[in-house]
Design a protein around this nucleic acid. Structure first.
Lengths: 338, 338
DNA sequence: AAGATTGCTTAATACGATTCAAAACCGGGA
DNA sequence: TCCCGGTTTTGAATCGTATTAAGCAATCTT
């Protein structure tokens, strides 16, 4: 791979001039510029981003850590972030933490060694506000949390309006005639899962429906586990709910499996609303009423905020918190009670 | 962020010694090593990967270009590749080409500037064997093609056994009693789509069923387009096929939409088999018989081959072609003809 | 026409690591 | 005591670029 020096020699100018042509920071006269560009073309020269970064101490690279790229919510987030980054000439390094705190720590260290200029973090479940993210903040690498936001109030966060979204879903179920509404959540140590639970409780209270503790089912992100957890509660028809809200996709899938395992179906026996799309399309039945989060926009906005931080280091310190509205897509699984 | 020099000063040794402790290439006596590690800890020092790369001209980074991260096939590919890369201490930069040749060109240039040591390429549809990939090869950056493999025979490729997979799907349909079998493909300029079409033809021929040209429907990766293309062919029941094989997920979705738009359903009116999963699970109906590609393993193997090339530069030049078997997951949509 | 001004171009330096050659060290044998 | 061989440590050079200050040529002023 050719270097700037070789380009300079071929063009018969100094390396400084070549650099000026490339960066555009200093004007270069037309004839020289022409010669330089010709030489660049001839040598198929690609500036060494490594060397440039070392000199300028700017890598124009952002890191993004997600729990699992194969959860359909995250690819959209990443595309949003990628688009925002790209518009400003930044590159994205996306990595998976597998929802493990130790991996997340390794990855933060890796990204730091790579000298990314900022990090988008959908935190691993076990330690949403772990010390290492804090360390990163202290090391003056801006971090914007998304989706999986921590408890602390002094950091930038972007997520859906979790409370309101859950509230909306429950209101919809109530309007459709359901009264015995259960909720299946992910790990409640996660802030956003808590908020969704709050929204559920608030909606019930507002409607004057007593919220029963045995209708709050805390699960995780593994459908198998969730199915195993729900099945016993669905077995006997005695205390069974007539509707279930699930606060995320994998959990919703688990609920659906539990229904099948118990010989129940939705909406015939029980209504179901879930966060995040379970099917690619609406062509399948049962078609599930869904709370759709603006995943792409969450990624986009988060990246924009991060870039703002990166480009105005330490200017304004007050945390930015963006909450984007989710949409309720009503389908068969929450059909009005007959 | 602290530097190796600061570590050296704090530990009271030379930068060389610190470097030796970190890389482990040269032995360092215990007391000094202790002091150095203590200093590293105190300063929260993270080696500057940028500077290291400049000096060693090794970035330990691989690039991967996919058409669209939100197509569910690719996240799995990437996870496979990430796992393989990670095992050997490499990092992955994943980017989307949006299936556009011009973007792909930009991205290749970007990755080259980033000095990635190798590239995994699921080529953009319009120019699967474009000149730029060739350029990259000439620039001595190893490239392994996956899924979207080019026509040329002199490059490393990893993909599913496309021919055989399609053949298997058609054999299954024939065994289930279907005879008028159509195929909906992606762009036929793509090698893997061609191979799938070949498999389709071969299976028909083997069964002594004449293959009719008007049953070959070339589409693309936009379900809307595919639906619009298929609908007219499904309208009148006269020449209508009794089964359809679709060679990829987005196309299959388009076919399904066309069926709905025409008031048809599967398997009642027409059987359907598609490559790639359309639903997250088997809980939905119609449950679609699917050719499942080993996406994770495709990514994993491709990365392994790439790393082999990276670490044994120019040693063995004969191209490696890996074809991994796909699995047929039989469900309702191809139920035996009643 | 000479000095001041403007505007390009160049040469030298630094970024933070690795690495190689040379210096320092250290015990043992003469 | 001195030297020797081997090991550990050091210091300097280097990777490819951006950047600053200084050099130089041409134009402008008066």
């Amino acid at each position: 791979m050719s270097t700037i020096k070789e380009v300079a020699e071929l063009a018969g100018v100094s390396v400084g001039t070549v650099s000026h042509v490339i960066t555009g920071a200093v004007p270069v006269t037309e004839p020289l510029r022409k010669k330089v560009q010709e030489a660049i073309r001839k040598l198929d020269y690609h500036p060494n981003h490594i060397a440039r970064s070392l000199k300028t101490s700017k890598t124009r690279t952002l890191g993004v850590i997600v729990p699992d790229l194969t959860i359909s919510f995250y690819p959209q987030v990443i595309r949003g972030a990628e688009t925002a980054a790209r518009q400003r000439g930044y590159t994205l390094i996306a990595v998976n933490s597998d929802d493990r705190a130790d991996r997340q720590r390794e990855l933060l260290s890796l990204l730091r060694s790579q000298r990314v200029e900022g990090i988008l973090l959908a935190a691993a479940a076990p330690a949403p506000a772990g010390p290492h993210a804090t360390q990163i903040v202290e090391a003056n690498v801006p971090v914007v949390y998304l989706d999986r936001i921590p408890d602390r109030e002094d950091v930038d966060t972007v997520s859906a309006e979790d409370r309101k979204a859950a509230e909306m879903a429950v209101e919809h179920l109530i309007a459709a005639g359901y009264r015995r509404i259960a909720i299946a959540t992910g790990p409640l140590m996660l802030r956003n899962e808590q908020r969704r639970l709050e929204g559920y409780r608030y909606a019930l209270r507002s409607a004057g429906i007593p919220s029963e503790e045995e209708f709050v089912w805390e699960g995780n992100f593994r459908p198998e586990d969730v199915a195993a957890m729900c099945a016993p509660k669905l077995k006997e028809s005695a205390g069974r709910p007539d509707a279930i809200l699930s606060t995320n996709g994998p959990t919703g899938l688990g609920v659906l499996r539990a229904l099948r395992d118990c010989g129940l179906s939705t909406p015939r026996d029980i209504a179901l609303v879930t966060f995040d799309e379970l099917t690619v399309d609406e062509l399948f039945s049962p078609s599930i009423t869904t709370v759709v989060q603006p995943a792409y926009e969450i990624g986009f906005r988060a990246a924009e905020i991060l870039l703002h931080r990166v480009e105005n280091r330490g200017a304004d310190i007050s945390p930015i918190m963006v909450r984007l509205p989710a949409a309720l897509r009503v389908r068969d699984s929450s059909r009005a009670m007959g």
